[in-house]
Design a protein around this nucleic acid. Structure first.
Lengths: 343, 343
DNA sequence: TTGTAGGCGTTATCAT
DNA sequence: ATGATAACGCCTACAA
């Protein structure tokens, strides 16, 4: 009872050939009803399950998708859940690897998944990655690959991403509408696409409103809370300090908030603050932080769907680009209207 | 160039037999140095990689560990990283499935992983699970299984967990030392082991300090922020309200904090608050929340190590139980000493 | 309608 | 030191 039953066992037990069993199981048209029933009954009884390894070996596909992500923070783990959901439904299993934002780790993960003979990849590249040769190996094997979230022009592949420019735009315009005049931006590393796009949105918004872009108000720093804290301290010690800060992630917004509080400034009165991602934490802190939401779960689903299309499609789809729209959630940190009405 | 090379290709190309190639590759002792070198060189050139499916099929093991977790929140994702770390080093690949705290989903995941022919399981059971038949199938297949974090007496298997009783104990004693007299506890669902253990620790601490346990101060509610919010509101509207609350998770602590603030009470003066897990969020809110930390990453590593031991060990290890110790991080929400010195 | 045989990529057991 | 062969579990021409 402890080793799984095989078609061979069934065949022997029923005194028929293996191929007949095989046919019956996959109910081929040309098999006698009686034998089919007999096979079905027995396979049921023995809890027969086809051996995936044998199948994969034979069919040369594992029905597995390799997913590589830089980390599993709130946003990405939601995206992965979206991917998982769609993949499962389509009969695929998902293998998730974290690169921990490390280039080396990303290479190792790619290699491991390639060795695991996944049928294709859904990838979000690490912030450290500047060389893309390891991904080219995927193409060389003719495996489908979809990039999502952190996309890059260096990779020719169908992609799914947020309209980060619009995200930067609506965040900045919101601050302008609230009457803020000197809006600073805490951007991420200079080579990171999402960061640059959000910053471009910020610049576009300013231009649209005929406001001169002041490069002193543009700050690049690492993608985390600590750096944002120190960067904000610098910003706040300028002779003409900004009266609002837009950070391109919520983690950075938290860092900025700590620096603002330490300086003794109040939000939204003295200074406005807007983050990005709309993670749960922004509504837990005081004041709650306005943030740009991206439809992460949905984005993951779209990525998986696109992958499956790509897989079933013979023609090249590298040019396909799905772009989802962000949405602003206004909260206390930047809302002068509401706050004035509060007790 | 697009299909991976096989030993067959190498053999043909070198005009030697497949088995010789196989031996050379795994550098068996009885193979001519020259041929070995030739094989090595060519396999290098062709980027030969053994086909894992074929290997697995042959050896009847996939070198894959199935991991089932109720969710991927902060604590569990750290644990999974710990598992991953050790597993990788030992040559295993990890397949992670989330049950989303759902019994049905847990069954499906078990089934899928079983079908994927994983070599064994590392499991943390969902809060909804009361029937364990699906896990018994694992045993029936003679596959090793380690349970971690959310363990249960219903499952006979080696286990790794936090000393939750001690966690409840140190949290409660800390509150007592800070001078709090009427300490309430927000516990989780009644059937959840971790919850009961932490509560037992709470009770033990009270008993140790000769304080009568008041069942009115023991509140069971769902494991999340919202329920904790409402439960706290109820607690605070008692005629003799508690002067401290110990919640068995940080999420619940946040809920409690919101209710406390809404009621206009101040922490730590009017009321003390201690959470559990030491998630990053507890140091971001105001006031920061005292919390019991569990060594999650370490716990994951221990679980994986135990798994590998179990796998390589013929004798039954079901009785083995590894217990890690918690540590209290004192913060503003319960620290009357420090806070009195603050401006 | 059913059975035979070959193959997916690998290793292990025999021979040679 | 090397080769032929069977086997892992399954599928699919092809033959019967």
């Amino acid at each position: 009872m402890n080793k799984p039953a095989t078609i061979k066992d069934i065949a022997k037990s029923l005194n028929i050939s293996i191929s007949t069993v095989s046919r019956a199981l996959r109910n081929a048209p040309d098999v006698n009803v009686e034998t089919k029933n007999a096979v079905m009954a027995l396979s049921e009884k023995l809890h027969y399950q086809p051996n995936k390894l044998a199948l994969s070996l034979r069919q040369k596909q594992t029905h597995t998708i390799g997913v590589i992500v830089p980390n599993l923070d709130y946003v990405l783990s939601m995206m992965v859940r979206g991917i998982d959901e769609v993949a499962l439904e389509a009969g695929y299993t998902v293998m998730v690897c974290q690169s921990n934002e490390s280039f080396g780790r990303e290479i190792v993960n790619t290699k491991r998944l390639l060795e695991s003979l996944v049928d294709g990849f859904i990838v979000s590249v690490s912030s450290e990655t500047k060389n893309f040769d390891h991904f080219k190996k995927i193409k060389e094997r003719d495996l489908p690959m979809v990039v999502f979230d952190r996309i890059t022009p260096h990779l020719q592949a169908p992609s799914v991403r947020l309209d980060n420019e619009e995200g930067g735009m609506i965040a900045t315009e919101h601050l302008l509408e609230q009457g803020y005049k000197r809006i600073a931006i805490l951007a991420g590393p200079e080579n990171l696409g999402v960061s640059n796009s959000r910053m471009q949105g910020y610049i576009n918004a300013l231009k649209k409103h005929k406001i001169k872009v002041d490069t002193d108000l543009i700050f690049h720093c690492d993608f985390n809370q600590e750096y944002a804290y120190f960067a904000t301290q610098e910003l706040l010690s300028m002779k003409k300090r900004p009266d609002a800060i837009f950070t391109i992630s919520d983690r950075m917004a938290i860092g900025a908030m700590l620096a603002i509080k330490k300086k003794g400034l109040r939000m939204p009165d003295d200074i406005g603050l807007v983050g990005f991602n709309n993670e749960p934490v922004v509504s837990l802190v005081t004041p709650s932080i306005t943030s740009v939401e991206q439809p992460s779960f949905e984005l993951g689903k779209v990525a998986a769907k696109l992958f499956i299309e790509t897989m079933h499609n013979t023609e090249n789809m590298d040019h396909v680009e799905k772009i989802l729209r962000p949405k602003l959630f206004v909260r206390a940190s930047s809302n002068r209207n509401i706050n004035h009405n509060e007790t």
